[in-house]
């Protein structure tokens, strides 16, 4: 047992940055997991994908203008979310095409800008994350985002559930559906920006979909789905951190791999909906 204990505690006893990485990883894993439940039921997975790619030019702009990276990232992330809605409302282009156009355009701009300032911003780290570069400033940003997400879900849970289940009836009942829509977009963008250092803007998409989808396969209740999502999201984040520390692997990628593994297990063995049991019960 002392061997295992040493394996678990060693990184954090000797390295300050690992402590910060672990706590940040847990918070990022938690807020992504909570939001992922709503992305799954609201079918916003592609929106998460789109916003996360649109964050990239903002990071480059911030660097060029000498601002903290998250200011530009938040700005272009939100701007792209609004642009997608605008194109959809003012043309015959459907939602999925509007998203595809905006996010690839924004992403291309980001790549072009970052390659033009070559060497001073690490594109690889932005795309795939490097939890070991987390600073106390990032930590603070993550905490603030976490408070926003948890606070919103706590106070507006019933309204958000109604709106995501039946937006039309919610609107007729007089719920502030537009406010909820933009609030969720803001939270989503903030979460993506806060996850940028930890898992990167490509890998964050998985953390915003997979834990919620795993929970969805295991229960028929939203609150239980959120709890399960939190468990899987955090297990992925924490084990991902350990494995990347000991085997020198990319943190975000390992986290996503573990999250995907949990999803596969649920897909095959979920007692109520798993492939394995479903086929057997048919016989």
């Amino acid at each position: 047992m002392p061997g295992l204990l040493r394996i678990l505690t060693e990184p954090f006893i000797y390295y300050e940055f690992m402590r910060l990485a672990l706590i940040t990883g847990i918070i990022v894993g938690s807020i992504c997991s909570l939001l992922s439940c709503f992305l799954v039921v609201k079918r916003w997975a592609l929106l998460g994908d789109a916003i996360s790619h649109s964050v990239l030019p903002g990071v480059a702009f911030s660097y060029i203008l000498g601002l903290p990276y998250f200011t530009g990232a938040l700005f272009t992330g939100l701007l792209s979310a609004l642009a997608m809605g605008y194109i959809q409302k003012n043309s015959r282009i459907k939602e999925d095409s509007a998203m595809g156009i905006v996010f690839t355009g924004a992403f291309a701009l980001g790549v072009a800008l970052i390659t033009s300032i070559r060497g001073r911003v690490n594109l690889y780290n932005i795309l795939f994350g490097n939890i070991l570069t987390v600073t106390s400033e990032d930590f603070l940003l993550t905490v603030i985002t976490g408070i926003m997400v948890v606070g919103t879900l706590y106070f507006l849970f019933r309204a958000i559930t109604f709106w995501t289940f039946d937006p039309t009836a919610a609107q007729v009942a007089g719920l502030p559906v537009n406010f909820l829509h933009y609030l969720m977009m803001l939270l989503l963008t903030a979460t993506i920006v806060a996850s940028l250092r930890t898992v990167g803007i490509v890998m964050v998409i998985a953390m915003l979909i997979t834990p919620g989808a795993t929970g969805f396969l295991l229960t028929y209740e939203l609150k239980k789905m959120m709890v399960l999502s939190l468990v899987f999201g955090n297990l992925s984040a924490i084990t991902g951190l350990y494995l990347s520390y000991y085997f020198n692997l990319a943190t975000g990628a390992v986290m996503v791999l573990i999250a995907s593994f949990f999803f596969l297990l649920a897909f095959l063995f979920s007692p109520s909906q798993g492939l394995f049991f479903r086929n057997r019960s048919k016989v």
């Binding site: 309204a159 559930t161 289940f165 007089g174 028929y220 939203l222």
Partner: peptide, 17 residues
Amino acid sequence: HYPLLVWEAVAMGRLKP
């Protein structure tokens, strides 16, 4: 397929601004 129980869906009728 929304993860919701029957009574929870009915309870939404009580929500007002």
